[in-house]
Nucleic acid binder design. Sequence first.
DNA 1: GCTTAGGTTTTG
Length: 761
Amino acid sequence: MPVHMLSEGGGRAEAQIPNHLQRIEIKKLTLDSECEDKYVKGHVVLKYPLNVLPNGRQMLKAVIQEHVTQQSSSGIMSINVYFFGMLAKDFSDAVKQGGIVMVTGFSLIRSPTANKDKRHPCQLELFEEKKATVYVQNPKYIYVPLNELKPGVVVNVYGVVTYYKPPFPTKGTDYCSAVTIMDQSGRKLSCTLFSDKLEALPQIYKVGDIVRFHRIKTERFQGELKGVTSAGFSALTFDGRVGGPVIPRTGSKSYHFVEEDQRMLEMLRQWAASRCSPSEQNLSTVQPKQFFDLTCQLVAKAELVKSVLLKVWDGTKCSHPVWKVLEEEDILEGSAVLMYELQNLTVDVQVYDNHIEVAKSLKPGAYLRINNLHAKLHASTAKKQISNENHLQFHLHGGTIYGRGIQVLSADSYDVQELKKKLESAEVRVHPNVSDSVLLDFSINEGTLHAQLERCQQQSVTVLTAHQHMKITSLSNVKNCKPPQKFRIRAKLKSYEPKSLYQSVKRCCPKCRILQEIPDDESLAHLFQDASTRPLNLNLHNDFWYKTAVGCTKNKQQIAFHFLVEDDWEKDAEKTSVMVERASLNEIFQLSRRFGNIIPVTSSEEQLTLLDLSAPFLIQGKSCYYGCKNCSNVTGVRPLRQFVQQESWEATTIAQSLGIQLLHHVFLVKLELDDGTACLDAILWHEADKFFRSLPSEAEVNVALQEELERTMKTLCPPGKGFDELPWLDCCIMTYSTEDGVFNQIFDTVVAEETDILFNC
DNA sequence: GCTTAGGTTTTG
């Protein structure tokens, strides 16, 4: 068989041919070339119909093209090939245009048409009887040139994007995106693409990108051929520039990309580069009245009456004087420092109508492409304008024609990489004066300007209440510094303990600063159980300041209630204070629903006394108050009248009267922080109320607040996220040593509210 | 499997 079929698709063609054969490049072929055991490899770019010569012999002409993957057009060389006899018939039947062929046993003769067709000066001739052989690898996918499309077929195509409208939700179930492409044939195809999955639509960044569509269906609409998605549609998108990355953007999990694709891509790139002037401009190259595409970084923004103002830079200086929209820059959202430093490089872009919403959602630091931006001459209507020079102003008008709109570019995209190089080499000329030295100092500490801006985007979910100008220290440095010291850090919260914040509510003595364990419900029940077995002392019933009533439970347990005399407990139970003797924990809680203040007591020989300080000395509703075992000095229960008169049933005053040092509620949360340089455990303790903007005493008893705190923690440390996806936390921490070791404690830091996030730049 | 949308420069 003179025509050998090689397996389709991905496998390398060379691996499937006899290995004594050696390749000879088309461009190296001459009439003198020694061609035995040599093969020529190329793509079939043209295949003519089978022809019969006057002598009755069959003949077929094809053009094969060698593609050398270098970046110059001289890397492409094509040659005419003639097949004779059965070889012609077999070739005609077996080979598809676009397939890869490797031919051996050919003869080389001068090409009579070289001058006309600009192909190789030689041509190849293959005769079966001279042992010519053709190895064929047909492409898995055939890409149809746009000028060969017919209506009503499902095809695969390549093309350069000449127009696109980013995906938008339709009135139906899908997203829709419109893309018009063009190929070397000069023909355009407008495609309407639908998908219920956003990522399945082509991720086009700009006009000039190159797309590959699989399974697009052609149909006639208003007299023109259009493309629409058909079942199994998939798209790859590439940067359209010669030398750009050959990395497809796609939502497909698996896609077929072979030599042939690379060839198609590079051919289109070459062609596109030779064609039209790009719509992309720098601020330095843009001319008045132009509509252009701008790749830039957002420095600041402000919402105006009928538009949104975006202050952007692209690292180049506009060659025309630019119109500043605002004289006062106070209303701009963004870092004043960076605005100041970049004042000579930024331009004001005014965004109107349908683009306002997108503009509002942008964060300073974002990398943007603004498509079809209008560089207008400012109408110098204002009489006060002294300068004769015409200022340029930049407007993004309403509508989406010509792909008009704003796109946020991902920080790792090719365009942003290129932009960053420009931003880094930009000449930022500022004239520091004395009063600005602090600000400049700040910026020098923080790396390049665009990186500083970028960080604005990665907003912190916490906000500092002071020390904003302190330099950020890495956690590895914090660990290496000798305590005590204070730092500003920026890290991510990898985990925290305890998982439920109400479990983090502890008691701490404000006097001796010692954290004291609170018994759990079971231990408490035991405490009250023990106390309930002690006998009642009838001598202690009724005194000048309380009246005693004895009740009996279902279990025939006697409970004594000592009511303060001034209280009218039948009328005003909620304000009533009662000392309760011999009640179980359950009974105490039941009573606390009825009476405002419960003070558990027990009888000694001479007086009523409090229980052990392990038990709460006061129960108000669901709240239990405890005393410090170190700092309290409890004797008997003294007359509590004065507090009733003052109607001051604050736990603190009751505690005072009983000789108790009240324990305060505190949050104690352990945070595992990581900033990529090191991991560090820090605690939230003395300033935790400030941090959460909540009271721990409330958190202990208020379910709604517990839920809110849980939500807060999920914002700081979203479950199931990888390190990269975690938000940053700006924190102040202090390090200190105790007998138990070195601790790191958070201070002057609060959880950001939405408005903080907006302005925390 | 059906539907969806189907752009051609503001005038600030």
